[in-house]
């Protein structure tokens, strides 16, 4: 985070249950209010129109759940990070919980640029919502992984683009039977990014996702692969909570 004043902190949080239907922006607003309810002062940027120094990591789509969301906040004063998860969670909507917080080194690279891979659990059902057999999916996964190219069409601001998602797929396998369908485990890169719905789409027209859960985000630097709380922590071990 930029700026010299204040105490940069990286926070990990989960977003589970009904609250998954709010947008990324709504979640940001909920944190903003929670910090104010708990009287945790955020440092402001300097300049003509000061703004709170908060930056969120990768966006979570409306309807997707996660146990691995991250944000960076610069607090105006030093805080007891052991107590922080409990305090902030109590002021957040039900289903959003802070599960860890660490002091960051000053000028740590931003989450958006640092995170290079994410993992998902995706429960797949038929388009009609009926159960899907795991072995049928195993065959489809094999076909997807052996493809040299997987073009998908994205619409952005009314313009259609074709993107090859194959280079972004690092891992795809059947994990376990789900409540209705079959749960897949996927790891994808963030550059080029791959969306869970695109993974399901390349498996075939007959399928759709029922539940999507982000289970991890990774920061990779050379050989090292870290959870974002560990990547740029000031005193990583000390401040880990719950």
């Amino acid at each position: 985070m930029r700026g010299e004043v204040g105490f940069p902190v990286r926070i990990r949080f989960s977003e589970l249950g009904k609250v998954r239907f709010i947008s990324h922006r709504d979640a940001a607003r909920a944190f903003d209010r929670a910090f104010r309810i708990e009287a945790l002062p955020i440092a402001l940027t300097e300049g003509f129109s000061p703004r709170p120094q908060v930056s969120f990591g990768l966006a979570l789509s409306v309807g997707h759940e996660s146990v691995a969301e991250y944000m960076d906040v610069r607090f105006a004063r030093d805080l007891d990070l052991d107590a922080l998860p409990g305090r902030v969670s109590a002021a957040l909507p039900e289903g959003i919980d802070v599960t860890g917080a660490v002091h960051l080194v000053d000028r740590a690279p931003a989450l958006q640029e640092s995170v290079t891979a994410v993992e998902w659990e995706i429960e797949v059902v038929t388009v009609e919502g009926a159960p899907v057999d795991g072995s049928a999916l195993t065959d489809r996964i094999a076909a997807v992984l052996s493809a040299t190219e997987l073009p998908v069409t994205r619409t952005r601001k009314g313009r259609e683009d074709t993107v090859d998602i194959r280079p972004g797929i690092r891992h795809l396998s059947v994990l376990r039977p789900g409540e209705v369908g079959t749960v897949l485990h996927a790891e994808v890169a963030t550059q080029p990014g791959v969306r869970p719905a695109e993974l399901v789409a390349v498996l075939g027209d007959a399928y759709r996702d029922l539940r999507v859960l982000r289970t991890a985000q990774w920061i990779e630097r050379g050989e090292a692969r870290c959870e974002p709380l560990d990547a740029d922590a000031l005193r990583a071990v000390e401040a880990r909570a719950s």
């Binding site: 609250v19 239907f21 709010i22 947008s23 409306v62 909507p93």
Partner: peptide, 10 residues
């Protein structure tokens, strides 16, 4: 806007 229908307001 599916969150119109979930309630759960503070």
């Amino acid at each position: 806007k599916p969150a119109r229908y979930i309630g759960m307001e503070r």
